[in-house]
Design a protein around this nucleic acid. Structure first.
Lengths: 213, 213
DNA sequence: ATAATTTCTTAACAGTGTTAATTTAACGAT
DNA sequence: ATCGTTAAATTAACACTGTTAAGAAATTAT
């Protein structure tokens, strides 16, 4: 029983209700465990309706994640204003890690799941845009610090530096998300692990360090 | 048409033929893209037969991975014989990374996919056993180096050191597996990234370094 | 009032993991 | 040699999945 014709605003409201239901479900039960039918039922629609707003399941999940990642990048812009370049790098690392650990399902979908390269076209996020892409932000800050001569002279490639910093933080977060619950590993506190990773990487990459180990 | 009664050896041969077919398929097409029916068809059996040898799909894939991971741990034992403790750590890191990048599907299933904690009981691998578990090997070597006083005095927890080294190498490998094909990142060569990660971590953790940056 | 359009639904397709019931063949005992 | 037992494999089915085609109800336009 289709009620009445809908305005653009109403259409968008339904679209975002779908996304909200999807987010709730797949954050609490994992991505592949939720079906389109479940999401639809949660908001009292038939599964087919979802396909009038999203091309397929992946597009829907992508849209959900995009929203949160834009949020992340936006919350990072504050940190990007810090005058101290090193503090800026540290702030980015901390913010990135906090987001990963607080949104493990999103993080997993975006950074721990291989996808076909064409999927880049399904996302709203403009990769490389410092306003939208957290990696672009890190790259930018590292570049600035590189130009300012903050890194050791042996390091001659700022992109390589950024990718290594990213990999270090990602490694701690990804292991925590994937294996944090396994009790055959006597995990140290994840914040300790993050702190040591950060301190270790920066210490041997930066030319000057305030408090050496 | 069930042919004849089978000896234990014949039973095990079929079991390993199933695993072989499964390995081939899911290495070339990804884990979740292969169905039990496909695996069965590859060796001219019905899907149901697989369930007489494995409790479910996950057990089958787990068994496949276990086999290769036991192989990894076994190939690491050579490296574990190196007299130089630092070279041993470096060797482990390199071997681990090479395995990850050559067996991305296995690696993803084992180290990039969260699972219910009970799944530990589905695996054959004895976690913590230095003969079978690559992380246990790393932990062991780091412990030895720690006792030998090779790390900086500020580092007082050898498990934390091991977990950070692991996270660093894992971070590079996991990013490469998940996002290595994305062209909006100007990836540096993965071996360069691995080398810098390893050098960086060890340099600021070890008390003495041969060739400082 | 009739026609067209929008919104939504039901029904269906092809596929999945998994299980129940069943067939076929080989064996041991009578 | 024939019986029943057991093992090995099969077919058929269940309850799902993502997705699409076709249809129904309500609104709008002519």
């Amino acid at each position: 029983m289709p009620p009445k014709i809908k305005s653009v605003a109403e259409r968008e409201e339904l679209r975002s209700r779908i996304m909200q239901a999807a987010r709730l479900l797949f954050v609490e039960r994992g991505i592949e465990a939720v079906s389109m039918r479940e999401i639809a039922k949660k908001i009292n629609y038939s599964a087919t309706t979802l396909y009038h707003h999203f091309a397929d399941k992946e597009s829907l999940l992508q849209a959900v994640c995009d929203e949160d990642f834009l949020n992340l990048a936006s919350s990072m812009r504050e940190i990007m204003q810090l005058p101290d370049l090193v503090k800026r790098i540290e702030g980015l690392a901390n913010g990135y890690a906090r987001f990963a650990l607080q949104n493990p399902s999103h993080y997993r979908l975006m950074f721990m799941t291989p996808r076909a390269p064409c999927d880049v076209e399904k996302t709203r996020i403009q990769r490389g845009n410092t306003e939208q892409d957290a990696y672009a932000q890190l790259k930018q800050v590292v570049h600035d610090a590189f130009v300012a001569g903050l890194f050791k002279p042996a390091l001659t490639d700022d992109a390589l530096i950024a990718q290594t910093l990213w990999a270090g933080i990602h490694g701690v977060c990804a292991l925590q998300i994937a294996l944090g619950g396994e009790d055959w590993i006597e995990w140290r506190n994840v914040n300790e692990r993050l702190a040591l990773m950060q301190k270790t990487l920066l210490q041997s990459m930066l030319r000057h360090v305030d408090a050496p180990m």
